[in-house]
Simulated scan of single mutants.
Amino acid sequence: MKLPGHGRFDYVPITARQPFCWPDGKRLAVYFGVNLEHFAFGEGLGAELAPGGPQPDVLNYAWRDYGNRVGAWRLLAQLEALELPATVLANSAMCDYAPELMAAFQARGDEVAGHGRTNSERQSELCEDDERRLIAEVTETIRTATGTAPEGWLSPWIAESATTPDLLAEAGYAYSLNWCMDDQPVWMRVRSGRLLSIPYPQEANDIPAIIARKAGAGAFADMIIDNFDEMLAQSAEQSLVMGVALHPYIVGQPYRLRQLRRALEHIARHRDEIWITRARDISRLCHTTLSDQIA
């Protein structure tokens, strides 16, 4: 029996791929995905600190808003202190809601990638024409606010329709972070050619770890450190990508930030052995120098 498939890429075991290196012969690329998200008040989706009651759900809305008002600024300062670049995964609504925060990350040279309009909605619920319009709206909003169109995309709630990769490529996007099936970039088939899938973590990610599985602040920091140490050892055999996904309303809480700092410092101490980068830079290298070496 042949099961239904997506047809976007073939099964190629990681042990049977062409060897390649990141810049300066390094084998492990590390990037930090900082999710800047804005939510509708009184309606729509959103992570919950506690089970939400009738709308307006002030408790959970305000908890999430802490990330933009406080947590993201504390996280930004920590990244700056350790000279760690970031890929900012921004709801386009952030450009109007917190332009100062967006500008602060941009001033550091951080990448801004598209992350839908708001995490109060899922783009997978839209028809193709509406989803195309959503992607165009997000792209133009970020381009107007930052001066540069985003090159990468992460869907809110990792929600895709059957045509999302096609629409992203047709809108000029070079890479997607939606698929978590690998530790290397993978080419995806789309209607207009190919789209790069860059690994985005669903394990070294504070929402699944802390909100879904209830990991403590120290356990989450240990998870990042153990994941990094193991991937650094594995990368002796072949080049890999490690992402760390961070949401300021979660890891920006003071007691969690203190533990996260320990993990960030651990990675920073290895900066001479690894390529600390942005997802955009991984994509650009794969589209040029490494175009024929990626599976």
Rank of each mutant, 00 (worst) to 15 (best):
C21L: 12
K26M: 05
D57N: 02
M102E: 12
A145L: 02
R213D: 05
A212G: 11
P54C: 14
W157K: 01
Q55V: 13
A212P: 05
N60K: 00
T289A: 13
R132A: 14
H6M: 15
L82Y: 06
I198R: 04
R74T: 04
A215Y: 13
Y173R: 11
A212C: 12
G44L: 04
Y11V: 13
V241L: 04
P156N: 03
A215L: 15
C180R: 14
Q18M: 10
R271T: 07
R132S: 12
I225E: 01
R191Q: 10
R284M: 09
I198K: 05
A212T: 14
N205W: 06
S235R: 00
E273P: 13
G71E: 00
D182I: 02
E128G: 11
I135C: 07
E83Q: 11
R74V: 08
P199E: 11
A136K: 07
L195S: 01
S283I: 09
S197L: 11
Q55A: 15
N119Q: 12
G42Y: 06
E80H: 13
T118A: 02
A103Q: 13
D183I: 14
T288G: 10
V88P: 08
I294P: 09
A29C: 01
A209F: 01
A16Q: 14
T146E: 05
S124A: 08
E265Y: 06
G25D: 06
Y61R: 09
D222R: 11
S124I: 07
E140M: 08
I276A: 06
L126R: 06
A86E: 05
M223E: 01
Q238A: 11
I225K: 06
A145T: 02
Q259L: 13
E111R: 07
A29G: 00
P19C: 05
L45A: 03
N119P: 08
D222I: 08
Y31M: 04
A62Y: 09
G114L: 09
S197F: 10
I135W: 01
R271E: 14
